[in-house]
């Protein structure tokens, strides 16, 4: 029983990182129907920037904010350069471009910084462990959970309480109609990339601290899995992305904890194929019938 709770808790921390990434995926997919393959690599860039900031002597929160800002700009830049022209032409060309951006970020980083695994200095967070009825909680867990909750609350506020949020919802509902109503679609898409990439940067820093590893390919797997989490929750739905992320994190943690650690990476993909076959709209997604 304690084992189970411990695994679930580990899964919750890991899952909330997935959730942060999945939120960005789902926002971007919701608004332009593109799987932003490079989203995972924005996480990696975020982790490096945060690491750099920490090494330069900034504290946790300033480093987080710097990483978020840098990646937000990077996200906007990616959309402008690699996606904007392609999107109207073909979704598959856009996907190809996205794969290109992903490889580009990974290997330019590797070229300049090398493939070595770097770690956050222990000073950024002295590890403490608390015991709660036999279940171990580290301050890392608390940090990850706390940051995720705060960011998601801020995000919900932006989307449902601000003009920008309203424009984002309008564009994702019907881009053309929104344009006719005077919404600047290109700007709204850019803002979506801005916010989504900032979230990814935060996830990157948390991931780097939580797993104590920063390297050029670190974003690949969490990126793919977060996409799966977004599909699981229902792509385009932010609560869905949160739910999907946490469910996926917990499932993985359970599989790893109860003997199948080698299969950990396959679990997510099996979930993906199953959900696409059984309920392609995801747990909280809405179905749309294609018009003939």
């Amino acid at each position: 029983m304690q084992d189970l709770l411990q695994q679930l808790l580990n899964g919750l921390s890991q899952g909330s990182i997935y959730a942060l990434i999945a939120v960005g995926y789902t926002m971007i997919y919701g608004i332009i129907q593109l799987i932003n393959f490079a989203h995972g690599d924005v996480i990696m860039v975020g982790a490096y920037v945060a690491l750099g900031a920490v090494l330069m002597g900034f504290g946790f929160i300033p480093s987080l904010l710097i990483a978020m800002l840098v990646c937000a700009v990077l996200g906007v830049l990616i959309e402008r350069v690699a996606y904007r022209r392609v999107r109207p032409v073909s979704r598959l060309a856009a996907l190809t471009s996205a794969i290109g951006v992903s490889l580009f970020l990974e290997y330019t980083m590797m070229y300049f910084l090398g493939a070595d695994i770097r770690t956050f200095p222990p000073g950024v967070l002295a590890e403490r462990t608390y015991s709660l009825g036999g279940v171990m909680i580290t301050n890392k867990d608390l940090l990850v959970l706390g940051t995720t909750v705060i960011l998601v609350v801020v995000l919900q506020y932006i989307i449902f309480r601000t003009r920008t949020g309203k424009a984002m919802r309008a564009v994702s509902f019907d881009g053309q109609a929104a344009q006719l109503m005077g919404v600047n679609v290109n700007n709204t898409v850019a803002i979506t990339f801005f916010i989504g990439s900032a979230m990814a940067a935060a996830a990157g820093m948390l991931y780097g601290i939580y797993f104590n590893s920063v390297q050029p390919l670190m974003g690949l797997m969490p990126g793919l899995k977060a996409f799966i989490a977004a599909v699981l929750g229902g792509i385009g739905s932010i609560p869905g992305a949160m739910l999907g992320g946490i469910l996926l994190g917990m499932t993985e943690s359970l599989v790893a904890g109860f003997g199948g650690s080698m299969y950990r990476d396959a679990v997510a993909f099996i979930i993906l194929i199953l959900i696409l076959l059984i309920k392609p709209t995801g747990l909280l997604g809405k179905g749309v019938q294609e018009k003939v």
Binding site: V86, G100, F104
Partner: peptide, 9 residues
């Protein structure tokens, strides 16, 4: 990577 992006765009 650049080939992919350039050809797609």
């Amino acid at each position: 990577a650049l080939l992919l992006i350039v050809s797609a765009v």
